[in-house]
């Protein structure tokens, strides 16, 4: 039984620059994943509801506008509310070093800064999803 990794990729915040998130989306596709791309200006509510309906293994949110200290914790909160604790949450964007630790405490495992290697992102998602799936299995 083959189960492709499904990833929801979204761009949150006010700016409409989605080049970066699209490059990552394509790289994930080329790595054999099923990527659900939802476009720009996504709210936390929209991102989480999409992940729920699409039965995603992972949510990747790209963010440049500085609202990360609101958006990521809110996504995390909604994920818990909807029972998506076994879904991976990762991010991308220019985020100050100081905030990364805070975000980690809010369930954002990893933030990729602009220029992060696509290979690293792919390898990380593979590893983290395998870990999450394994944990879910043991739990069930």
């Amino acid at each position: 039984m083959k189960r492709p990794i499904r990833v929801v990729m979204a761009k949150a915040g006010l700016d409409g620059h989605d080049r970066g998130v699209k490059v990552v989306a394509r790289a994930l596709r080329d790595a054999g994943m099923e990527v659900i791309y939802t476009g720009v200006h996504q709210t936390p509510e929209q991102v989480v509801e999409t992940a729920l309906q699409e039965d995603a293994d992972a949510i990747g949110v790209s963010l440049l506008s500085g609202a990360h200290n609101y958006i990521f914790p809110r996504i995390s909160e909604l994920m818990t509310e909807k029972g998506l604790d076994d879904v991976l949450l990762f991010g991308g964007g220019i985020i100050p070093e100081d905030d990364i630790a805070t975000l980690r405490s809010h369930g954002v495992e990893r933030i990729f800064q602009p220029g992060a290697s696509l290979e690293d992102i792919v390898a990380y998602i593979r590893e983290a999803v395998a870990r999450k799936r394994g944990a879910g299995h043991a739990k069930g």
Binding site: P4, A25, R26, L28, R29, D30, A31, G32, M33, E34, V35, I36, Y37, T38, G39, Q42, E45, Q46, E49, T50, Q53, E54
Partner: peptide
């Protein structure tokens, strides 16, 4: 070749994302 896919239809359907009576699956 890779089995991967870029599913982009939702981009056009965002107004319905939070509608409780609508379920979208790519």
């Amino acid at each position: 070749f890779t089995g991967g896919a870029l599913l982009g239809d939702r981009i056009r359907m965002r107004d319905g994302f939070l509608d409780d009576g609508l379920f979208i699956r790519s």
